[in-house]
Every structure is written in C-alpha cells, then in structure tokens.
Design a protein around this nucleic acid. Structure first.
Length: 517
RNA sequence: GGCCGGUUCGUCUAUCGGUUAGGACAGCCCCCUUUCACGGGGCAAAGACGGGUUCGAUUCCCGUACCGGCUACCA
C-alpha cells in the first residue's frame, strides 16, 4: 500500500481562538509554536476565528487578537483579516456548511438527534448525581433514558422534526472500543469509548460546537498539524472518531497537545486573576472588557519588548538542548522542533520574564530603542527632541533598565532638571568647606572651554585637592545635584551630556536649597 | 467520583542506561564600581516513593503518592 507521506504535503497549521476576551500567555505561546513549526517547514500559518458561541461574543476581541499577533510579529498567511483561499475564516460565517456533515453522521448512524431541553438535562444530572458519580454524562447508558432519535420511534422523530422542535445532534459514542492516536509530544494516547460522553455536535441554534467545527474546518482547510492546549486532550477521541466517521481518516492532521502554563504559586492553570493578585501581566496587551469596563494590563504596556516576550514564551516548555536561552525569532524558527517540547506544565516565573526583557534591552542598539524610548519619555512628560542626545543617553543607561518605563527614571534628568533633590542624603555631612568647593567648581565649569567627561573629572579633582577634600565625599553631592538621587551612570558622563549651562544651574540650585535649610 | 495527562535544585530546564546530575532565574558571598546597574568569580540547592528489568538506573516497565486537565447546546 502506498501512503502519501505527510512530509510531502505542504505544512498547514492553524490557531483557532475564540474571540471572548484578551489573549493570554498560553494563547500566544500556542500561536508561537504553530508559527515556528509552520515556518520551520516552509508551511502556512492560518488563523481561524472560532466564534461558534454567539452568547460569548465580545466586541473588539477579534481585533485585539490581530493587534497582538502584529505586535509579536507573528503574521498569519491566511485569516479573516489577511484573506486566503479557504475563506471565510470566521466560523460564524461558515455556519451553513456544518449541517450537511451533521446530517451525514446521523444518516450513517454515527450521530443522533436529541430533543432534550436544557431543563431536561439539568434534571437528568440532578437525578443521576451520586457521590460516586458527581457529574453524570449523556453517554451510552443515559441516552436510553432521554428524548432522542434512539429512544423515540421513527414516526415520533419525524413529527418532532417536522414541527420544528429545537434539537441538537449528538455523536453516538460506540461501546467499549479503544481509540488511540500518536501525539507529537506525548506519544501514544488511548481512550476507551465507553468512558466518553455523547458530545453535542450541532447546537439547537444551528451552530456547530467546537467538536464538529474543528474537524470540518481542519479538513476543509487542509490542516496538516493541529496544536492546542492540553485541556483538549480528553475530547481528542471525539475528534479522532469524527475524522473516521466522516471518512477522512487519511487526511487527519497530526496532533500535539501543548503543556499548560501554570500559576507561579500553588498549582493550577495560570489565569488573569493570578496576574492581578501577584502583580504581573498575563495578557499580551492591554485589554478593556467592553461590558464591565475592567482594564487588564498587558506585557506590551508594562514595558516588554515584543522580541523578549516571544523569546520568553518559546522557552516556556521548549529548549534547543543547549544552554542558549536568548533567541531571535529567526533563530527560534531554525532551532524549533516539536520533539523538544515538554510534556509537563510550567509554572510562570515573572522574574525570569523580566530577565529576558533586560537581556533584549541590553542587546538592542540605541537606534533600535530610540523611537520607543522617546515615546515612553513623552508619555511621562519628558520631551527628548534631540535624537543625537537621546541615542547617547540610551547607550549610557540601557543596562540599568529592565522595563521600558525604567528609561523614565534613568533618562528624564538628561532632558529636564530633576523636580526633587535627595538633599537629605548629603545634608548631614554638609560643611562650609564643601560649599566653598562647589562654588568654585561651578565657576570653573562656567569658564571651561572644553566640555568632556574626562576634563570635567580632572577639574573636579584638582579643585578638590586644592580644598583638601577627598573626591569620594564630593561625588555623591555632585550626583544628587545633577541627577536628583543616588542612581544613574557616571556623573561626569551626565554632565558632559546635559551641557555646561545646565550643569552649573543644577549645582547652584542645590547649593541654594542647602543654604536655606 | 470517573477518564486522561504529568512528576530532576524554590522556579524554568539539560541528561535520550554508566556524569563529581550541567545551565539559567531568584537567593547569599566576594571582586569591579567614590551612586545604581552591568560585568566577573564563588556558595547553597534536585532525580516523589516502592518494586522490578539490567553488570549498572534520573533514564526502561509496574504499582503507589502527589499535582494538574477534562467531565456544558464554552472554547
């Protein structure tokens, strides 16, 4: 027998989000693994919007998803936004195409109509709930006790259908069969069909559930590899069976169930709440819930570089087998392989995330950072109009910034005089002698012809010696005069950049503050 | 409860039968630095447990424990 090897087919993967809110870490990582795998194999990355639940529709969520992908630089080859040969890419717009497959399954005896109302189901669950079985399933046992085309006569079913009675289509899980498949990450996984319930395939409103839609669309869109979170593992047998019942087994994609991203403390899936509670972002970008108005901050607005965000996500559950942890997207594409994705979930570590961002800021050139830094500064009320100066400042301070916002504290004083001076740190040891020194220093600076760090330091030391003072006890006062506080790069580098006039002004300003205290 | 999955330093992880079990983040110490960082050096820190298989198991198998996921006309 000749098989068409999947390696000969063009790789096509899809990310299929439900537009119900902000995109969280785990979601972006799923996108990333899809993207890396596709690009690694010269394939296509498709985004398909799974908006089959009309009750959960959230305004703006879809646009948010695309904005996030754009920020991360993970551009889809096909999507509702980018178009493509298999449009539409929104399941709500594909609604009409699902019913025929549901009917096909019913006609073949693999699925059936169920007329139970939500109240009926609720009652059933209440009735059969016991301590041993806290959540009774609509399965091979219970379906015989419900109102469906298995328990009802053919005539009754026909009459109900003709009367337009609301109904769903459910898969008829076979009794005691073993369904197994090879997961790219976990190897062989198998299930006994008696343990799986009769999932709804087509809802009463005519929309498919995820179970039907994912199979139909993956087939129609010629998806070759299906990656999703581990939470989908339990429903995999339903999907495998559907591929089989629809007669598409030969084209079924390879599956990979990605490990979950866990909360840093305790256990369990990472949620938005954990971020709020522990003080770090969980969403990629800011998200405001249109209904509640609740705002959630994202990694972007928190001051992360997209390269760092992508990098840290890739290394959460994957590594290339070496000690290398910092990768560009191109390096990730080159190094990526599903075989090296972990099975176990990973607790999210915000400290490590900060480290990645700092690494990326350190490695970026001043020119790379300039626009963003200027923007960050502007948002904080500081105008950096001179690009030349801005570049010098960035080079001087970037290794002390872990978040973009750090450029505000580390960089503002280059462009405007500090609004506050930490004089409390120098006051106790302040003397007339020091006062005299700074008066003379400011005069000397004022009459300087050259204005470079090296010369300024030389002048500073000469005058200090003349006053019989150690440079060490004068450095901190000078720093506070120029910076406002005990931080920042070398004082003379700072003086060199802010210029003669500003340097002298700041020295005199603090001198007068000290005098009045 | 049932089903499925997972388990190496506090955290992320390397190891694809033989290693002093390696690296990174965080922590601590030292050096560099007349601030804060960066950088350099060092310390401390791990195979859940019990059985097998094997000359030899962190690695392969089984059981137990623990953790997680799922158990909707949600994805």
């Amino acid at each position: 027998m000749i098989y068409i090897c999947s390696m000969e087919k063009k790789v096509r993967v899809r990310f299929a989000p439900s537009p119900t809110g902000g995109l969280h870490l785990g979601g972006v990582r799923t996108v990333l693994f899809n993207y890396l795998f596709a690009k690694k194999h010269g394939g296509d990355f498709i985004v398909r919007i799974e908006d089959t639940d009309q009750t959960r529709f959230v305004e703006g969520a879809e646009a948010y998803i695309f904005n996030t992908l754009a920020w991360c630089g993970l551009t889809p080859d096909e999507s509702p936004l980018h178009g493509g040969p298999y449009a539409p890419y929104r399941q709500s717009e594909r609604k009409a195409s699902y019913k025929q497959y549901a009917d096909q399954l019913v006609n073949a005896g693999f699925a059936y109509y169920a007329f139970d109302t939500p109240e009926d189901l609720e009652q059933m669950r209440a009735q059969y709930k016991t301590d041993e079985n806290p959540s009774p399933q609509y399965n091979h046992l219970l379906r015989t006790k419900m109102r469906n085309s298995i328990t009802l006569s053919e005539a009754e079913v026909a009459a109900l259908l003709a009367a337009g009675t609301p109904h769903v289509v459910r898969i008829k899980m076979p009794l005691d069969e073993t369904v197994s498949f090879t997961d790219m990450i976990r190897g062989e996984v198998s299930f006994n069909t008696s343990q799986v319930d009769d999932k709804v395939l087509l809802k009463a409103d005519g929309m498919p559930t995820y179970h039907l839609a994912v199979v139909v669309d993956d087939y129609l869109m010629k998806i070759t590899h299906a990656f999703r979170g581990e939470e989908w593992l339990p429903s995999a047998p339903v999907h495998i069976l559907l591929w089989k019942y629809l007669g598409w087994s030969a084209e079924m994609p390879e599956w990979a169930h990605l490990p979950l991203i866990l909360k840093p403390d305790g256990n369990g899936k990472l949620s938005k709440r954990d971020g709020d509670r522990l003080g770090f972002p969980v969403f990629a970008m800011d998200w405001t819930d249109p209904k509640t108005g609740e705002k959630t901050t994202g990694f972007k607005e928190r001051g992360f570089l997209p390269q760092a965000f992508v990098n840290l996500l890739a290394l959460l559950g994957w590594n290339d087998g070496t000690d290398n942890e910092v990768f560009t997207i191109d390096e990730l594409i080159a190094a990526f392989s599903m075989e090296r994705v972990h099975k176990g979930g990973a607790k999210f570590n915000y400290e490590k995330a900060l480290w990645y961002n700092q690494e990326w800021i350190k490695r970026a050139t001043a020119a790379d950072l300039a626009d963003q830094v200027a923007e960050t500064l502007a948002a904080a009320g500081t105008t950096a109009s001179n690009r030349e100066v801005l570049l010098r400042v960035i080079d001087l301070v970037k290794e002390r910034c872990t978040l973009m916002a750090d450029f505000v504290t580390q960089g503002s004083f280059f462009f405007m005089s500090p609004s506050e001076f930490d004089t409390a740190s120098i006051q106790p040891k302040w003397t007339d002698q020091k006062n005299m020194f700074f008066i003379e220093l400011s005069k000397a600076f004022e009459s300087s012809i050259v204005w470079e760090a090296h010369d300024l330091e030389k002048t500073f030391k000469e005058i200090a010696a003349a006053h019989d003072l150690k440079p060490g006890e004068l450095m901190l006062p000078l720093r506070i005069m120029l910076v406002g506080g005990k931080f920042g790069p070398g004082v003379f580098d700072i003086a060199a950049i802010i210029g003669k006039e500003e340097t002298v002004n700041r020295i005199q300003k603090v001198l007068s503050i000290l005098e009045h205290n």
